[in-house]
């Protein structure tokens, strides 16, 4: 494949043309916040709206997961506009996320915490109102615990379940009511969950967690 050269935060990066900037940055040790992107997946969902970057010559910030590398591109991962959009998307996600880090099994391994650390964003609601959805925790599976109140709807579990598990997870409903669930919204155990744990390994936050560490 044809190799091209581009610049991310003044660093020269050589890459195959067309590869999304998000992966090039991450591979070169430049962090860009992201939740929904999966390396190698064909069409990026571009759903989490966190991976904003500035590209020289573009009128406004773009998502790095959808921006293909081209020769000579000059990319910046930080700018006032980028920071503002990242902060907005991050705090919006927090507003619909059950915040209980100290009791969460994902504490210290959570991507939301990682983003907060990297971008110096507070892990609490500053501006927005708390949106509580009161969705019950699904404890039916012997292997995984599902707390929809922590789900950020990145869709990684859906993809993992289809590839490695029994393919029982999917999205249902729309708008604010959108959620990851099973067909007919029955508990995991009744939907045919094999307990493989692929979904929990894919989950970037504490929504899907393994019940025992030994699985």
């Amino acid at each position: 494949m044809q190799k091209i050269t581009l610049f991310i935060d003044d660093r020269e990066v050589k890459a195959p043309a067309g590869r999304p900037i998000l992966w090039l940055a991450l591979e070169n040790g430049i962090y860009i916040p992201n939740l929904c992107a999966v390396p190698g997946a064909e069409d990026p969902p571009a759903a989490c709206r966190l991976c904003w970057v500035e590209v020289e010559g573009y009128p406004r910030p773009v998502t790095a997961c959808t921006e293909p590398a081209r020769d000579g591109l000059v990319v910046r991962t930080r700018s006032p506009r980028v920071d503002r959009l990242v902060r907005a998307a991050f705090e919006l996600l927090l507003s619909a996320h059950r915040l209980e880090c100290s009791r969460c099994p994902k504490n210290r391994a959570c991507t939301l915490q990682e983003i907060a650390r990297a971008r110096r964003l507070p892990l609490r609601l500053v501006r927005y109102r708390k949106l509580a959805r009161d969705l019950p925790v699904d404890n039916s599976s012997p292997a995984v615990r599902y707390d929809p109140g922590k789900c950020v709807l990145c869709g990684r579990c859906v993809r993992a379940c289809r590839r490695e598990g029994t393919g029982i997870l999917g999205f249902a409903r729309r708008g604010y009511e959108r959620r990851v669930t099973t067909f007919g919204e029955v508990p995991l155990a009744r939907a045919g969950c094999s307990g493989c744990g692929a979904c929990a390994l894919a989950c970037p936050v504490g929504a899907l967690t393994l019940k025992t560490k030994s699985v």
Partner: peptide, 14 residues
């Protein structure tokens, strides 16, 4: 809103 992206799903709700 279809609910796919954060900005529209939660931003319009806020």
């Amino acid at each position: 809103s279809c609910g796919k992206c954060t900005m529209c799903r939660l931003g319009t709700r806020q």
